[in-house]
Protein backbone atom coordinates (compact mmCIF):
# COMPACT_ATOMS: atom_id res chain seq x y z
CA UNK A 1 0.00 0.00 0.00
CA UNK A 2 1.03 3.55 -0.73
CA UNK A 3 -0.25 6.24 1.60
CA UNK A 4 0.03 9.91 2.36
CA UNK A 5 0.29 10.67 6.06
CA UNK A 6 -0.45 14.10 7.42
CA UNK A 7 1.00 14.14 10.91
CA UNK A 8 0.96 16.76 13.66
CA UNK A 9 4.53 17.74 14.53
CA UNK A 10 5.26 19.82 17.60
CA UNK A 11 8.76 20.07 19.06
CA UNK A 12 7.68 20.68 22.65
CA UNK A 13 4.89 21.83 24.95
CA UNK A 14 5.37 25.50 24.12
CA UNK A 15 6.36 25.14 20.48
CA UNK A 16 3.99 25.90 17.64
CA UNK A 17 2.84 22.76 15.88
CA UNK A 18 1.87 22.05 12.29
CA UNK A 19 0.63 19.24 10.06
CA UNK A 20 3.46 17.76 7.98
CA UNK A 21 3.07 15.50 4.93
CA UNK A 22 4.85 12.16 4.75
CA UNK A 23 4.39 9.93 1.72
CA UNK A 24 4.96 6.28 2.60
CA UNK A 25 5.14 3.12 0.52
CA UNK A 26 5.37 -0.63 1.06
CA UNK A 27 2.80 -0.87 3.84
CA UNK A 28 1.26 -4.33 4.21
CA UNK A 29 -2.32 -4.79 5.28
CA UNK A 30 -1.24 -7.14 8.08
CA UNK A 31 0.57 -4.30 9.83
CA UNK A 32 -0.96 -2.56 12.77
CA UNK A 33 -1.29 1.22 12.56
CA UNK A 34 1.58 1.65 15.01
CA UNK A 35 3.75 -0.76 13.03
CA UNK A 36 3.09 1.47 10.04
CA UNK A 37 4.39 4.40 12.11
CA UNK A 38 7.41 2.25 13.09
CA UNK A 39 8.15 1.90 9.37
CA UNK A 40 7.88 5.66 8.93
CA UNK A 41 10.17 6.32 11.89
CA UNK A 42 12.72 3.82 10.65
CA UNK A 43 12.80 5.73 7.38
CA UNK A 44 13.01 9.13 9.09
CA UNK A 45 15.90 8.03 11.30
CA UNK A 46 17.82 6.66 8.33
CA UNK A 47 17.27 9.96 6.51
CA UNK A 48 18.61 11.88 9.48
CA UNK A 49 15.24 13.35 10.45
CA UNK A 50 13.54 13.43 13.83
CA UNK A 51 11.19 10.46 14.26
CA UNK A 52 7.55 11.07 15.22
CA UNK A 53 6.98 10.77 18.97
CA UNK A 54 3.90 8.80 20.00
CA UNK A 55 2.88 6.93 23.14
CA UNK A 56 2.34 3.18 23.08
CA UNK A 57 3.24 0.20 25.21
CA UNK A 58 1.31 -3.07 25.38
CA UNK A 59 0.15 -2.97 21.75
CA UNK A 60 -2.73 -5.26 22.60
CA UNK A 61 -5.40 -2.76 23.54
CA UNK A 62 -5.31 -2.87 27.31
CA UNK A 63 -2.67 -0.55 28.79
CA UNK A 64 -4.34 2.60 27.47
CA UNK A 65 -1.05 4.28 26.61
CA UNK A 66 -1.61 4.66 22.85
CA UNK A 67 -3.82 7.45 21.64
CA UNK A 68 -3.93 9.26 18.26
CA UNK A 69 -6.71 11.12 16.55
CA UNK A 70 -6.92 9.39 13.17
CA UNK A 71 -8.96 10.98 10.40
CA UNK A 72 -10.82 12.98 12.98
CA UNK A 73 -11.65 10.10 15.33
CA UNK A 74 -9.93 8.95 18.51
CA UNK A 75 -8.32 5.53 17.89
CA UNK A 76 -9.34 5.68 14.23
CA UNK A 77 -12.33 4.53 12.23
CA UNK A 78 -13.08 1.16 13.89
CA UNK A 79 -15.22 0.95 17.00
CA UNK A 80 -14.24 -0.75 20.25
CA UNK A 81 -10.53 -0.95 19.59
CA UNK A 82 -7.49 1.14 20.42
CA UNK A 83 -5.05 2.52 17.87
CA UNK A 84 -2.61 -0.30 18.50
CA UNK A 85 -5.31 -2.81 17.49
CA UNK A 86 -6.17 -0.97 14.30
CA UNK A 87 -4.76 -2.77 11.27
CA UNK A 88 -3.90 -1.35 7.89
CA UNK A 89 -6.39 -3.64 6.14
CA UNK A 90 -8.98 -1.08 7.23
CA UNK A 91 -7.39 1.45 4.85
CA UNK A 92 -7.06 1.51 1.07
CA UNK A 93 -4.09 1.95 -1.18
CA UNK A 94 -3.68 5.64 -1.98
CA UNK A 95 -5.46 6.87 1.17
CA UNK A 96 -4.52 10.10 2.89
CA UNK A 97 -4.52 9.68 6.67
CA UNK A 98 -4.58 12.53 9.18
CA UNK A 99 -2.86 11.79 12.49
CA UNK A 100 -3.18 14.19 15.41
CA UNK A 101 -2.70 14.07 19.18
CA UNK A 102 -5.57 14.15 21.70
CA UNK A 103 -6.63 17.77 21.73
CA UNK A 104 -7.78 19.03 25.11
CA UNK A 105 -6.68 21.85 27.37
CA UNK A 106 -6.29 19.34 30.19
CA UNK A 107 -3.95 17.12 28.09
CA UNK A 108 -1.01 19.35 27.07
CA UNK A 109 1.16 18.09 24.23
CA UNK A 110 4.59 16.85 25.30
CA UNK A 111 5.92 16.27 21.81
CA UNK A 112 4.25 15.54 18.45
CA UNK A 113 1.52 13.01 19.24
CA UNK A 114 2.38 12.36 22.90
CA UNK A 115 0.30 14.18 25.51
CA UNK A 116 0.33 14.50 29.29
CA UNK A 117 -2.65 12.69 30.84
CA UNK A 118 -1.51 13.21 34.44
CA UNK A 119 -4.87 14.83 35.19
CA UNK A 120 -6.46 11.36 35.17
CA UNK A 121 -4.05 10.15 37.84
CA UNK A 122 -4.82 13.17 40.00
CA UNK A 123 -8.56 12.54 39.69
CA UNK A 124 -7.98 8.92 40.70
CA UNK A 125 -5.91 10.03 43.70
CA UNK A 126 -8.75 12.30 44.80
CA UNK A 127 -11.14 9.43 45.41
CA UNK A 128 -10.91 6.56 42.94
CA UNK A 129 -10.38 3.85 45.54
CA UNK A 130 -11.86 1.92 48.43
CA UNK A 131 -10.16 3.02 51.64
CA UNK A 132 -8.96 -0.38 52.68
CA UNK A 133 -5.38 -1.03 53.78
CA UNK A 134 -3.51 -4.21 53.06
CA UNK A 135 -4.70 -6.44 55.84
CA UNK A 136 -3.29 -9.58 57.30
CA UNK A 137 -6.59 -10.82 58.57
CA UNK A 138 -9.46 -10.10 56.25
CA UNK A 139 -12.90 -11.58 56.09
CA UNK A 140 -13.28 -14.34 53.55
CA UNK A 141 -13.91 -13.08 50.03
CA UNK A 142 -17.14 -15.05 49.83
CA UNK A 143 -18.53 -13.78 53.14
CA UNK A 144 -20.43 -11.10 51.27
CA UNK A 145 -22.23 -12.30 48.13
CA UNK A 146 -22.57 -9.71 45.38
CA UNK A 147 -25.45 -10.10 42.91
CA UNK A 148 -24.01 -11.17 39.59
CA UNK A 149 -25.88 -8.41 37.76
CA UNK A 150 -24.22 -5.77 39.93
CA UNK A 151 -20.84 -7.37 39.67
CA UNK A 152 -21.13 -7.60 35.87
CA UNK A 153 -22.10 -3.95 35.59
CA UNK A 154 -19.25 -2.98 37.88
CA UNK A 155 -16.93 -4.90 35.61
CA UNK A 156 -18.28 -3.17 32.51
CA UNK A 157 -17.42 0.17 34.10
CA UNK A 158 -14.08 -1.06 35.44
CA UNK A 159 -13.02 -2.05 31.92
CA UNK A 160 -12.00 1.60 31.31
CA UNK A 161 -8.35 1.79 30.25
CA UNK A 162 -7.88 5.48 31.02
CA UNK A 163 -6.72 6.30 27.50
CA UNK A 164 -8.52 9.64 27.27
CA UNK A 165 -10.39 9.00 24.01
CA UNK A 166 -13.58 10.19 25.70
CA UNK A 167 -12.02 13.57 26.42
CA UNK A 168 -10.57 13.81 22.91
CA UNK A 169 -13.93 12.96 21.36
CA UNK A 170 -15.93 15.45 23.42
CA UNK A 171 -16.46 18.91 21.94
CA UNK A 172 -16.42 20.21 25.53
CA UNK A 173 -13.31 18.25 26.49
CA UNK A 174 -15.24 16.66 29.34
CA UNK A 175 -13.86 13.77 31.40
CA UNK A 176 -17.25 12.66 32.68
CA UNK A 177 -17.15 9.21 31.08
CA UNK A 178 -13.79 8.43 32.69
CA UNK A 179 -14.84 9.71 36.11
CA UNK A 180 -18.26 8.08 35.94
CA UNK A 181 -16.77 4.69 35.09
CA UNK A 182 -14.68 4.70 38.26
CA UNK A 183 -17.49 6.09 40.42
CA UNK A 184 -19.89 3.50 39.00
CA UNK A 185 -17.60 0.54 39.53
CA UNK A 186 -17.40 1.25 43.24
CA UNK A 187 -20.97 2.50 43.62
CA UNK A 188 -22.26 -0.82 42.30
CA UNK A 189 -20.28 -2.94 44.74
CA UNK A 190 -21.00 -3.22 48.46
CA UNK A 191 -17.29 -2.67 49.19
CA UNK A 192 -17.47 0.75 47.58
CA UNK A 193 -20.73 2.00 49.11
CA UNK A 194 -19.47 3.31 52.47
CA UNK A 195 -17.54 6.18 50.82
CA UNK A 196 -19.67 6.57 47.70
CA UNK A 197 -20.64 10.14 48.54
CA UNK A 198 -17.16 11.46 49.29
CA UNK A 199 -15.86 9.69 46.22
CA UNK A 200 -18.34 11.32 43.86
CA UNK A 201 -17.79 14.76 45.36
CA UNK A 202 -14.00 14.55 45.49
CA UNK A 203 -13.48 13.11 42.03
CA UNK A 204 -15.79 15.65 40.42
CA UNK A 205 -14.10 18.49 42.29
CA UNK A 206 -10.70 17.38 41.04
CA UNK A 207 -12.05 16.89 37.52
CA UNK A 208 -13.23 20.50 37.52
CA UNK A 209 -9.94 21.73 38.94
CA UNK A 210 -8.06 20.06 36.08
CA UNK A 211 -9.90 22.18 33.54
CA UNK A 212 -12.03 19.53 31.84
CA UNK A 213 -15.24 20.82 30.28
CA UNK A 214 -18.79 20.10 31.32
CA UNK A 215 -20.94 17.26 30.06
CA UNK A 216 -23.83 18.22 27.81
CA UNK A 217 -25.00 14.69 27.00
CA UNK A 218 -23.60 14.56 23.49
CA UNK A 219 -22.51 10.95 23.79
CA UNK A 220 -19.47 11.06 21.49
CA UNK A 221 -17.36 9.80 24.42
CA UNK A 222 -19.22 6.52 24.63
CA UNK A 223 -19.34 6.04 20.85
CA UNK A 224 -15.57 6.47 20.60
CA UNK A 225 -14.67 4.58 23.78
CA UNK A 226 -12.51 1.58 22.86
CA UNK A 227 -13.99 -0.34 25.79
CA UNK A 228 -17.60 0.58 25.06
CA UNK A 229 -18.15 2.27 28.43
CA UNK A 230 -21.84 3.13 28.55
CA UNK A 231 -23.38 6.59 28.99
CA UNK A 232 -25.46 4.98 31.71
CA UNK A 233 -22.43 5.51 33.92
CA UNK A 234 -22.65 9.26 33.50
CA UNK A 235 -26.29 9.09 34.56
CA UNK A 236 -25.23 7.10 37.59
CA UNK A 237 -22.49 9.60 38.45
CA UNK A 238 -25.00 12.45 38.20
CA UNK A 239 -27.31 10.56 40.56
CA UNK A 240 -24.51 9.75 43.00
CA UNK A 241 -23.28 13.32 42.89
CA UNK A 242 -26.68 14.84 43.39
CA UNK A 243 -27.46 12.64 46.38
CA UNK A 244 -24.04 13.34 47.85
CA UNK A 245 -24.33 17.08 47.32
CA UNK A 246 -27.83 17.27 48.82
CA UNK A 247 -27.10 15.14 51.86
CA UNK A 248 -23.61 16.32 52.63
CA UNK A 249 -22.97 17.44 56.17
CA UNK A 250 -21.35 20.83 56.24
Amino acid sequence: MKLTLKIWRQAGPDAKGAMVDYPIDGISEDMSFLEMLDVLNDKLIREGQDPVAFDHDCREGICGMCSLYINGRPHGPERHITTCQLHMRKFKDGDTIYVEPWRSAAFPVIKDLAVDRGAFDRIQAAGGFVSVNTMGNLVDANALPVPKAHSDKAFDAAACIGCGACVAACPNGSAMLFVSAKVSQYALLPQGRPEAKERALNMVEQMDAEGFGNCTNIGACSIECPKDISLENIARLNREYLVAEMTKES
Binding site: F129, V130, V132, T134, M135, G136, L138, V139, D140, A141, N142, L144, P145, V146, P147, K148, S151, D152, A154, F155, A158, Q185, Y186, L189, Q191, G192
Partner: peptide, 22 residues
Protein backbone atom coordinates in the same frame (compact mmCIF):
# COMPACT_ATOMS: atom_id res chain seq x y z
CA UNK B 1 -6.06 -17.08 49.65
CA UNK B 2 -5.42 -13.71 51.36
CA UNK B 3 -4.85 -12.11 47.99
CA UNK B 4 -8.38 -12.85 46.86
CA UNK B 5 -9.79 -11.47 50.13
CA UNK B 6 -7.71 -8.31 49.75
CA UNK B 7 -8.68 -7.73 46.13
CA UNK B 8 -12.39 -8.25 46.79
CA UNK B 9 -12.19 -5.76 49.67
CA UNK B 10 -10.66 -3.24 47.23
CA UNK B 11 -13.58 -3.58 44.86
CA UNK B 12 -12.02 -5.80 42.19
CA UNK B 13 -14.98 -7.12 40.14
CA UNK B 14 -14.13 -10.81 39.89
CA UNK B 15 -16.44 -13.11 37.96
CA UNK B 16 -19.32 -14.38 40.08
CA UNK B 17 -21.93 -17.08 39.74
CA UNK B 18 -25.67 -16.56 39.97
CA UNK B 19 -25.60 -17.01 43.72
CA UNK B 20 -23.30 -13.99 43.96
CA UNK B 21 -20.25 -15.98 44.99
CA UNK B 22 -16.88 -16.03 43.26
Amino acid sequence: ANIIDQCVAQGVPFARDYGGLL
